[in-house]
Each structure stands twice: as structure tokens, then as C-alpha cells.
Design a protein around this nucleic acid. Sequence first.
RNA 1: CGGGAUGUAGCGAAGCUUGGUUAUCGCGUCUGCUUUGGGAGCAGAAGACCAUCGGUUCGAAUCCGAUCAUCCCGACCA
Length: 479
Amino acid sequence: MAKIQNKNDAITSRDVDFAKWYTDVCRKAELMDYSSVKGFIDYLPYGYAIWEQIQAQLDRRFKENGAENVYLPMIIPSSLFNKEKEHIDGFAPETLVATLGGGETLADPLIIRPTSEVLFCDLYKKLISSYRDLPKVYNQWCSVVRWEKTTRPFLRGSEFLWQEGHCLFETEEEARNNAMTMLGVYDEVGRDVLAIPFVKGRKTEHEKFAGAVATYTIEALMHDGKALQAGTTHYFGQGFAEKFGIRYLGRSNKLEVPHQTSWGVSTRLIGAVIMVHGDDNGLVLPPAVAPIQIVIVPVRQEAEGVLDKCQEMGAALKKLGYRVKVDDSDHTPGWKFAQWEMKGVPLRIEVGPRDLAEGKAVLTKRVNGEKLFVKIDELPALIPDILKRIHEDMYAKAKDQLDHSVVDVDNLEDLNEALNKGGYARMAFCGEEECELKIKEYTKGGTARAIYKEEVPEGTLCPVCGKKATMVVYFAKAY
RNA sequence: CGGGAUGUAGCGAAGCUUGGUUAUCGCGUCUGCUUUGGGAGCAGAAGACCAUCGGUUCGAAUCCGAUCAUCCCGACCA
């Protein structure tokens, strides 16, 4: 029987206080710590290792799609930043600006990048002169700073780690395809790596990125019923390129302006993993990003052969490429079980004298507590399938929750009721900003997350203004 | 940025109303012995400029002011 949990180690129940549960998990799974500057966090090894796994998975796919990595400065001269009016109107309120250098006042204050559109434009202006220089598919891994008013670990920080792809193409078609391709990459990483299903689609005018022609998004559903924007891709048209004077000599010997895209995901994905999969025992990590995929816990490790067997199994599994930890610390087995559950390790293997005698081991899946009794000799051959099943179970669980949350409504009262329950509600509307703002006010925070369909049956009216509806949109309350 | 709450050892708290020797307790940590299949037991030990700065006072964790940080609820955004 489970003993009474140590009060100090217990985390707040998910259903009692979801926000508290979230921060408890972040702290107690040792993902991060608060730094001494508001909104800036210390990434601890276990949390950073998750990010490294996510990075590796994304980076490989970006490169498969033609991306090359670059690194641009973290500061932008304000004179340069101010070139694109629509863009700075979106970002100016949340920039951090350096005004002193070496104790001297800077004539042109330096903005710590909140995003690097203008730096990429500045670079591309120098690099592009012929259609032969296109396309350019550059990506940057870096951190950006936005002076946020309220912050939460991984979900919203004054500084966050991300990647930003910035690309130039000859034609609108190529550029639009790139925005969709990268949205597909994000969606795939969600499905195959993070075990997170997304709602995806174009953003409404009101929600789109400052300076973009079109913004596309992937939106996840958290366990508390709120949506989380997990990544966006943008088609910029030629707006930025024109402002920054990027031109090239085209195939017909005329000066042309390239078509531009950008795309990004951030450490917010870590927050999504926590809030989609986590439970009252702590973190639950999908095998593909877990810093430790398998933890081996010896039981009565001082007994003849137990620890040796564990080390031997650990070494064998490591050799096969798995991330394995043999916990030979002198805590009790019960403590270790609880500890590694807190940290979300997908698979636990227990080996004790009894198992040893029978040549077996006990396997426990973090996602559902399912126990398997397997022969130690057969273990290496069974692991791939077991981890695959864990991933599939996690995805199915999340997909089920997402699918069950979606309801179709056709008036404001039903929309409000649906959004208060949590999850997504689909409703036709006209797409006008004014109506979107009214919806937000009426539902106390409901926003358009993504466009579900770009067309509606003949005669469908917007429930807000009564004019012709033009689209069906996923609405939700969001982080 | 508005409303609310909080800040005392690595963690969680008591003490503050009504100022007064050496700041209390639990967990964790360290040492030793016994333990080990769901957060072990006993014994001993170490660990705190009471968030920061300033003020009131003979004397401040305690009263006053400012600042900083964290959490929650709004408004704003990845």
C-alpha cells in the first residue's frame, strides 16, 4: 500500500489548481529555476536536455527541407528596427533597449532582438543580387527578449529560446509553399516526437503577425481546456523586402522583389509537453524527447548480482542507442519510483533478487502505469516496440482529449458556454476584427485560434454582426 | 499595466497583532548503525546577514516607507 506522501514532495493536484500544478512540476522535476531578473529563468540540465532533444528533431527536419543555420547579432540598431512601421508597431512596446555602451550614451540605441526579421532583411540585402542567389532558406537558433508584463516558465518569458527561419523566394507560390511545408514540419514533430496533436490553420487578420500577409499556426489543447499557440509560420509577401530594398535581377533581366517567409517555434513547446501529458504524479515525457528514456531501478541492490545485472542491462541498452539511467543511489526503491515518475521517464525497469532468480524484469510504463513482465534476455529486442507503444498511447490519449473538446456552435451564447467549459468551439463568422473583439469581450477572453474552413455554405451569417460569414474558425481561451 | 496574495535555512512553514537574550518546527543534507518489491527507522551534527534599501526606536524578523521578486485574477503578447 502506498504510504502517506511526504508533504513537501507532493505536488498540487492538477484538478485542484492547474496553475500551481504546472509550476510545481517545473520546479520539482528540476526543469528550471527562477533567476534574479523577472521573467528570466535558469534552465536546469534536465529541462535544457529536453530542449536539446526537441532542437535535434527539428533541426534535422529543417535541413531535410533545405534550411541552413546562421547566427546574426542579438542587437538591432533602432534606426534599422524603425524601418518597418507595421512591424515596429507590433513590437516596440515590448523591446528592451540598450542606451549605454562603455559608459557612453549611444547615439543610436541598440534594441535587444524581440525577433530578427529586420536583421535578416539587412543581411539579405547584401547577399541577394541575382535570381541565382535564390531561394535562401536560413534558420537561426537563438534567444529573443520581449519585455513581457506577466511571465510563466516556458510559456511566456522575457527571454525565450527559439528558432526562427527566414527565407526568400522568387515567386509567391514558392514562398507560400515554404510556409505550408514548415507548418507541416511542426505538425509532424508534434505527432511523431512530442505526441501532441494540433489544430492547425491560418490566423485571422486580427491574430496574424505584425507585418505578415498570412500567418499559419499550430494550436495545442492543454489539460485544463485552454489552447496554446505552439508555433507559427508566416508568408510576408514583398512588404519587408520592399521596405529594406532587397532586390535582385530576375530571369527577364528586370529588378524584382523577392517573396519572404518566416517560421518559429520556441521553448514554449516544453510547456506544451508538460501541460498536455503531465499528471498528478508529475511530468510524463514522450520517449523521443525524454533525456532519460529508461530508468533501471535495482531492488535490494546490495543483494548478490542485482546491481551487476542492472549495470549490464543498462550498458546493453545504451549500446543500442537508448538514453538509460541506472539509479544506484542509496535511496529506497519506493523513493526512486516516485522520483523518476516525477521526472516523467517513459519506462522503468525494476530488477530485484526475485526477478533475477527467474531471469525476468518488471517494466512499468509511465503513461498509464501498465506493468510488463519480460525475460531479461529478450529485453533488447522488445524495447523498440514498447517505446513505440508508449508514444502511440500518449498521442492517442491527447488526440482523444482534443477531439472530444471540439464542438460546433452557431451563436454567441453557445460559444460562450463551450469556451467556459474549455476546449475548442467552431463557429462561422465574418472575419472582421471588430466582431472578433466583440467575441473576446462577450466570452471573457475567447479568441480566434485558427481558421478551420475558408468558406461557408451559401447564406451563412456572422452571429455577431449579422453580415455574411466568410469562414469557420476555431475559438478557444488561450494561454 | 490595474486588482489581490506572498517573501524567515536547500524546501515547506511558525513567530509579526502587543518590538526585548542565543529566531522555532518538519522535510531535506552530513555521520553512524539497522533497512530496501511504492517516497524507511533510530542516534548525533551542520545549516539563517529574517528579500533589498532606508526610516522610527535604547533596541526591529516584528512598526513605517520605497524597491525587487514570485504566485493568482484581468488587460497585452510566442
